[in-house]
């Protein structure tokens, strides 16, 4: 038998919940990053000491642990480093439409972002963010609807 207790009606049980709700601050770096998204910009932190841009934006550099005050615009196209597709949501529920997610890196930037990607995107694809219309942006990672293939001609 798989179950040790085969009749829950026969024993005393209690139920409980911990009624908590959270309202998080985005933080100093998060605030800057999200305000940038609302303006259609992806910003990386720039460590003047390491001369390195990195995502996500932080107030410190995880290489030298100096403070990071500058941020730089991520202008380069993203590159899909890994890709997955799922038909299940966070709670294991079945989604109407499968969703594709990718881990996206940017040239000249350490770290990367995870985001939804449009159809037709493959590992190795060059992608760019599709932002929501300006009036619909709220300062959220969801201000980027998804990343889609970057069909602009390569300039370099």
């Amino acid at each position: 038998m798989e179950e040790r207790i085969d009749s829950v009606e026969g024993i005393r049980q209690w139920t409980g919940s911990i009624p908590l709700h959270y309202e998080y601050t985005a933080g100093v770096a998060g605030e800057r990053f999200l305000r940038g998204l609302a303006q259609g910009k992806i910003q990386a932190g720039y460590c003047a000491n390491c001369k390195e841009a990195s995502l996500p934006l932080r107030i410190y550099c995880i290489k030298c642990y100096g403070g990071v005050e500058r941020s730089v615009l991520v202008r380069s196209a993203g590159k899909v480093a890994a890709l997955t597709k799922t038909q299940f949501g966070q709670g294991g529920e079945r989604l109407g439409e499968p969703v594709a997610f990718a881990y996206i890196t940017f040239e000249g930037v350490t770290g990367g972002l995870v985001h939804r990607v449009a159809d037709g995107v493959r590992v190795g694809s060059s992608v760019r963010p599709r932002f929501k219309p300006k009036r619909k942006r709220t300062g959220s990672i969801l201000d980027i609807e998804f990343f889609e293939r970057d069909l602009r001609p390569r300039t370099s």
Binding site: W14, G16, I18, P19, L20, H21, Y22, E23, Y24, T25
Partner: peptide, 17 residues
């Protein structure tokens, strides 16, 4: 500060049920 309505709620579970 993120925790609402109050951090005390987190402690409910430490009492003997």
């Amino acid at each position: 500060s993120p925790l609402h309505p109050h951090p005390q709620y987190a402690f409910w579970s430490i009492f003997d049920h």
